[in-house]
Amino acid sequence: MGTFNETEFLRDYRKNPDRAFRQLMDGFRDRVHLFCLRAAPNRDDAEDLAQEVFIRVWKGLGRFRGDSSLATWIYRIAWNVCASYLEKKGRSPELTTYMEEGEEDTEPRLVASSVDAGMKQFEDRQFLEYLFESLPEAHKLVLTLYYMQELTYEEIAAVTDWPMGTVKANLHRAKAKLRTAAMEELEPAD
């Protein structure tokens, strides 16, 4: 995404849509697709979601006022599209009711003991992928925003509509759980 120029893109969107479309695809296609894969591991569903995201982005560009960065705005749309998809599947990505300060830690449900013994035969990488995939969708999405899209806490709060404290808590604890579970399986203490 290093070469994506927001100003140039917004100018081209009006004057040269073909070029603007190319810029949008080069800058965001794979990232938005991966983001959608976090919500819908099924490749076809993920592509449908990504198409929906880009359609909403393109049609909404005329209303983009630059209150946030274009990337934040695009991921906000992606978040909403994925959230609607998850809700239809009966899996809401809302996390605001847990992980609040002082609350009993019950999520993510992933702990080492829940890992099936048969998983041990997986290669490390496959095992780590399994752990990551086992996280609640919201955690996967937020971790993706943080690491891949390189959004700041503030930007993730804008994308998800969560309070900043919730964003930080979710990120920290999702990572900690993931790391702990992985450590117990792959690098057990002597």
């Binding site: 359609i55 990488r125 780590l128 992928e129 990551f132 891949m148 993931l178």
Partner: peptide, 28 residues
């Protein structure tokens, strides 16, 4: 190692017809 799982070195691309289909839907 976890980072490399969350952010694969090579991002998975959608199928080859993705852009064409999107362009057609957008009328570009």
């Amino acid at each position: 190692r976890l980072r490399s799982i969350i952010v694969p070195a090579e991002l998975p691309s959608p199928s080859p017809g993705f852009e064409l289909s999107l362009k057609a839907r957008l009328g570009i």
